[in-house]
């Protein structure tokens, strides 16, 4: 945690709304992206992002400031996403299959930039669909890894699993994605 962030967390814990707002501003894009990439739905992702910060606001007074803030925040958001996926599964009549999911959610929300335009929207949607097709325990590791280039140790801490487990899940997830992404990779390498 950088020193400024530590100060912001301390001030937000004491109920300073400006400090809390600054923390949200720092992380709101990453939390929304984490949720979109895990849930495949923009609407659901925005609900989870808001709920994440509601929980953060309510539980900050009990947060141990000797620990880094970001993994704690990511753990709250990830658990809320996983809860959401479980509830979605428990309602089979409304459950979304990967191919029906709003896989263009993040591409339609993407901030326009020269880099973004390098990936065509349909290619982006194909990648998102492939990721959504992964089993949950693999998908969550892939999404966290690409969230902020998170190291395995941090992913392990967020998910409460061992680093070896992260390594294994990521390796298998990438093997599974190979077939799904093979065509895209072919196109991009031409």
């Amino acid at each position: 945690m950088n020193p400024n962030e530590g100060i912001l967390v301390q001030r937000a814990r004491r109920g300073d709304p400006g400090a809390f707002t600054a923390l949200v501003e720092t992380y709101r894009e990453r939390i929304t992206r984490l949720a979109i990439n895990l849930l495949g739905s923009r609407e659901d992702a925005e609900d989870v992002a808001q709920e994440t910060f509601v929980r953060v606001y309510s539980t900050l007074p009990r947060f141990d400031t000797s620990r880094p803030f970001a993994p704690w925040l990511y753990r709250i958001a990830t658990n809320l996403c996983l809860d959401h996926l479980r509830r979605r599964k428990a309602r089979p009549q409304t459950a979304q299959l990967p191919e029906e999911m709003d896989v263009t959610a993040s591409s339609s929300l993407a901030v326009p930039s020269p880099e973004n335009t390098a990936i065509r929207a349909e290619t982006h949607a194909e990648v998102m669909r492939a990721v959504q097709g992964l089993p949950e325990n693999y998908r969550v590791v892939v999404v966290l890894r690409y969230l902020d280039d998170l190291p395995y140790s941090e992913i392990a801490e967020i998910l409460g699993i061992s680093e070896a487990n992260v390594q294994m899940r990521l390796s298998r997830a990438r093997q599974r994605l190979r077939a799904a992404l093979h065509n895209i990779q072919g196109e991009r390498s031409e």
């Binding site: 949200v24 894009e29 509601v54 990721v131 990438r174 190979r178 991009r188």
Partner: peptide, 30 residues
């Protein structure tokens, strides 16, 4: 694997738009 990594990174690390009022909404709801 490296090629796949670049494709995944482009898709999953591309910034998305998020609500500019998230802090206000979260505080009001809490």
């Amino acid at each position: 694997l490296r090629l796949q990594h670049r494709v995944l990174a482009k898709a999953l690390a591309t910034p998305v738009q998020s609500s500019p009022w998230l802090a206000e909404r979260a505080m009001a709801e809490a």
